[in-house]
């Protein structure tokens, strides 16, 4: 059984690798590689895998990405942390003070409906080209995700759990600590993966619009001088950052929500 399983895993891996390799080879060939000189994909715009790899290695060895990489990571992590903390805080506030919720509901709905990248120009205008405008943009996305999850988490606390906790003699604080909080955190952590991904989106979009640093900025600068190799290199780096952050949040989720039945199929 185990053998069969590990064989299947191996076969899947090979198949997946083949698909990726085929796409890369096609890209390389169609963009003038392998001495074929095909120009189906103009390498000026499409570059090609070998050139991207060369540029990536070259850039990495010279440390050309380091500063911008750190900038992007810092802004998105600040956006993430601030978004989570404020989202939880405001979620609780609104859940416990229904009048506050009623008062602000239209405003919250309006802001949440706003495509957040559209805020970028405004934020750059107000906060300048530095880190602040990107952090706020990143925050503005994460905040709503966490806020709505916190609110939903509080509203969906199982009343039977509150009931038994109360009959067993729990005071208000203990009910909050042992029933409400775990329930809310399960919602917030379930949304962690999405939050992390959107924190990165916020940071990069902010850098596109107006910045002096960051991977988004460097990409935009490379585009300006038609350096397509560099554009794709940065795309690859961003992809890697996304994958790593997603895996980290998955691990956190698994650890903290191990009491949940595994969802079928995933």
């Amino acid at each position: 059984m185990r053998n069969r399983n590990s064989f299947e895993k191996f076969a899947t891996l090979v198949a997946q690798g083949t698909v990726i390799a085929a796409l890369l080879i096609a890209w390389e060939g169609l963009a003038g590689g392998f001495g074929l000189n095909l120009k189906t994909l103009d390498p000026v715009f499409f570059s090609r895998p070998s050139r991207v790899a060369a540029d990536l290695i070259n850039g990495l060895s010279k440390g050309e990405f380091t500063r911008d990489f750190l900038f992007t990571i810092q802004t998105s992590m600040w956006g993430l942390v601030l978004g989570i903390v404020s989202g939880i805080a405001v979620g609780f506030l609104f859940a416990y003070l229904p009048w506050l919720n009623r008062l602000f509901e239209p405003l919250m709905v309006a802001f949440n409906s706003l495509p957040r990248p559209a805020l970028a120009p405004v934020l750059v205008l107000i906060l300048g080209l530095g880190m602040a405008s990107k952090i706020v943009l990143s925050w503005s996305i994460v905040f709503f995700i966490v806020f709505y999850n916190t609110y939903a988490g509080i509203m969906s606390v199982d009343p039977d759990l509150v009931k038994v906790a109360r009959i067993m003699g729990s005071n208000r604080f203990q009910i909050f600590r042992h029933v409400i909080m775990p329930s809310v955190f399960s919602w917030v952590f379930a949304a962690l993966r999405v939050s992390v991904a959107f924190a990165l989106v916020g940071a990069v979009v902010g850098e596109f619009v107006g910045s002096t640093q960051g991977l988004g900025y460097q990409m935009e600068a490379a585009r300006g001088v038609l350096n397509s190799d560099r554009v794709y290199s940065i795309l690859l780096i961003l992809m890697m950052i996304g994958v790593v952050l997603t895996e980290i949040s998955k691990a956190i989720e698994r650890r903290l929500l191990r009491w949940r039945p595994p969802s079928p199929g995933i």
């Binding site: 009931k163 038994v164 067993m168 009491w259």
Partner: peptide, 24 residues
């Protein structure tokens, strides 16, 4: 008070559930 629906805390293990009233 024992409810029809077993109102165990899903985030606590069996023993931690039984301990809960003693813990508080």
């Amino acid at each position: 008070y024992v409810l029809q629906k077993d109102a165990l805390f899903p985030w606590r293990t069996l023993i931690k559930n039984v301990e809960y009233p003693l813990e508080i």
